[in-house]
Computed example of a mutant assay.
Amino acid sequence: MWAFIHKLGSPKGFYAISARWLTPLWLAAAALILIGGTWGLAFSPADYQQGDSFRIIYVHVPAAFLAQSIFVAMAAAGFVFMVWKIKLADMAAAMMAPLGAGMTFVALFSGAVWGVPTWGTWWQWDARLTSMLILFFLYIGVIALRGAFASRDGGARAASVLAMVGVINIPIIKYSVEWWYTLHQPATFSITSKPAMPAAMWLPLLLMVLGFYCFFIAVTLMRTRSEILRRESSKRWVRALVEEQR
Rank of each mutant, 00 (worst) to 15 (best):
V106D: 13
A107N: 03
T121R: 07
L108P: 13
W123S: 00
V142Y: 15
D126P: 06
V116I: 13
I143N: 04
W114M: 06
T104R: 03
L138H: 15
Q124C: 11
S110N: 05
T118G: 04
T118W: 14
L108E: 02
T118L: 09
D126W: 01
T130S: 09
F109R: 05
D126N: 00
A107R: 00
L133Q: 09
P117C: 15
A127Q: 07
T118C: 12
W119I: 08
I134Q: 02
V116M: 13
F109M: 14
W125N: 01
W114N: 05
V113A: 12
V106C: 10
R128Y: 06
T104A: 12
W114K: 03
A127V: 13
W123C: 02
T121Q: 03
F105V: 14
L133F: 10
V142P: 02
D126V: 10
W125D: 01
A107V: 01
L138N: 06
M132D: 07
V142T: 14
Y139V: 04
W123M: 02
I134G: 04
F109G: 14
W122P: 00
I134N: 02
L108C: 06
W125F: 08
L135I: 10
L138I: 14
G111N: 01
D126Y: 04
A112D: 03
L138Y: 15
L129N: 02
I134W: 13
I140V: 15
R128M: 08
W122Q: 01
Y139A: 01
R128F: 15
T130F: 15
A107H: 02
V113S: 09
S131T: 14
W122F: 15
L138K: 07
I134E: 02
F136H: 15
S110V: 07
W114G: 08
G111D: 01
A127M: 12
D126A: 03
Q124G: 14
T121G: 02
L108T: 04
